[in-house]
Design a protein around this nucleic acid. Structure first.
Lengths: 203, 203
DNA sequence: ATTTGTATTGACCATTTGGTTAAACTCTTT
DNA sequence: AAAGAGTTTAACCAAATGGTCAATACAAAT
C-alpha cells in the first residue's frame, strides 16, 4: 500500500542518512543500512534500485534542507547584525545535533564536484539570490569589506569547529565532550561579537 | 639493498599519500596505490604489511609535518600580528598545494578519533606548548579575547575555504578554478586584516 | 475463499578487494 | 661462477560487498 510504502521508504531513508553521513559513501555498507532500518537487504534495492541512487536521494534531501534554511535566514529584510546572529544561532544548533554533517557534505562534494550543479538545481538553490542582497546591504550600511570575505569568514567560524571536533575536543578540553559542546554553544555569542568587532574596522 | 629499499619505500609512501589523501582510507584501493607507484601489488604488502599499516605510516608522517610547521611558527618570540601573518602565509601556501589535505585529515580523525592521542604522541606534538605562550602573549599585549576563540577563528578562516573549495569555487567564481586559487592567495592579506581589525575591539 | 498485486525474505551470484605464496629475478659476496 | 640474501612478480585465495531472483507472506478486492 502507498501508506506502508511511504512509511518503509521513510524508515530506510532515515537509516541510510545516518549511515551515509557517519561513514561516507565509500565507507557505508548496504547491510548496515538494512540492519539499522530493521529490514532485509533486498528491500533496499526494492525501494531504491542501487547504492548510488539511495545515496543520491539522501544527499539531495540534506542539501535541500540546508539550503532552504539559509535562504530563509538571508532573505528577511533585517539588519546585518541580526542576520549574523540568526545565522550563527540556527546553524550552530543544527551542527550541534548533526556533528558529522559538515565532514560528510564536504567529503562527498570533493569526491564528486560535478554533482553539485545538478544538486543546486534540483534543490532550487540560487546562490546569487543570497549574495547580491547581502552585498547591497553591506554597501548601504557602509561596510567596505568584500561580501565574499565576509560570508566566508562567518561560515568558517561556525562550521569549522565542528569539522575539527575531535581535535578541538582533545586539545582544548582534554577529550571532555560535554565541555566541547558547551563551548560550541557559547561560541554563538562569541562569533557574533568577533565579527561585529571586525566589521567596525571596515566602516 | 638498504639504499634500494629506502628508495622503493619512498616511492610507495608518496603514491600511498596521494591516493589516501584524495580518496580517504575507505575509498583508497591498494591496486591504485601500486599502479601509481609503478609496482606490483604484492610489493606493497612486502614493504608495509597491510593497508592499515600503510595508512598509519602515511597519516602519521603528514601529521608530524603539519604539527612541526605549526610549532615552528608559534614558538618564535614575535608579535601577535607577525605570528598571524606568518601562520596565514605558511598554511595558505601548504593548502593551496594540497587541496585535499584538510578534508582528508578531518575525515580520518572523525573516523577514528582515538588514533589522535597516539598520533600526537608519536609526532611529538604538545598542544599546551602552543596554547600557553599564546595566552600569555595575548594577555601581555592587552587583548581580552579568549585564546581558544582566537586560535579557532584564525584556523577556521584559513582552512575552511579549502575544505569547502568545490562550493566556493562554484558559487563565488562560477567554477573558474584559477579565479578561486587567486582568491585563496588574496585572502592571506584579507584574513590578517580581518583578524587585526577584530582584535582592536578586544583592547 | 480465491485471486491479485504488492511487500518482504532467503538463497544465491559476480565482482571487487585485501592479502598470501611460491617462484623468479637481481644484486652482492665469496 | 656459485651461493645466498633480498627484491619483485604472477597466480591465486577467502572474505566482503553490491546486486539479483524466485519464492513467500500479506493485504485488499472480488
Amino acid at each position: 500500500m502507498t501508506n506502508k510504502e511511504k512509511q518503509t521508504e521513510e524508515i530506510i531513508a532515515e537509516a541510510a542518512r545516518e549511515v551515509f553521513v557517519e561513514k561516507g559513501m565509500a565507507g557505508a555498507r548496504m547491510q548496515e543500512i538494512a540492519d539499522k532500518a530493521g529490514i532485509n537487504k533486498s528491500l533496499l534495492h526494492y525501494y531504491f534500485r542501487s547504492k548510488d541512487k539511495l545515496f543520491d536521494f539522501v544527499f539531495s534531501k540534506i542539501m535541500g534542507k540546508i539550503g532552504g534554511m539559509l535562504q530563509g535566514i538571508m532573505q528577511e529584510g533585517v539588519s546585518i547584525e541580526d542576520k549574523i546572529g540568526k545565522f550563527v544561532d540556527t546553524y550552530t544548533d543544527l551542527l550541534s545535533k548533526n556533528p558529522f554533517l559538515p565532514n560528510f557534505i564536504f567529503g562527498e562534494i570533493t569526491r564528486n564536484p560535478d554533482g553539485l550543479i545538478k544538486r543546486f538545481a534540483s534543490a532550487d538553490i540560487k546562490p546569487n539570490q543570497l549574495l547580491d542582497p547581502l552585498q547591497r546591504q553591506l554597501n548601504k550600511e557602509g561596510y567596505t569589506i568584500h561580501p565574499h570575505d565576509f560570508i566566508l569568514n562567518l561560515l568558517s567560524m561556525v562550521i569549522f569547529p565542528v569539522v575539527a571536533r575531535p581535535i578541538v575536543e582533545r586539545i582544548f578540553f582534554e577529550g571532555d565532550h560535554k565541555a566541547y559542546k558547551e563551548y560550541l554553544l557559547s561560541r554563538k555569542l562569541s562569533i557574533v561579537d568577533f565579527v561585529m568587532k571586525a566589521l567596525q574596522g571596515y566602516k
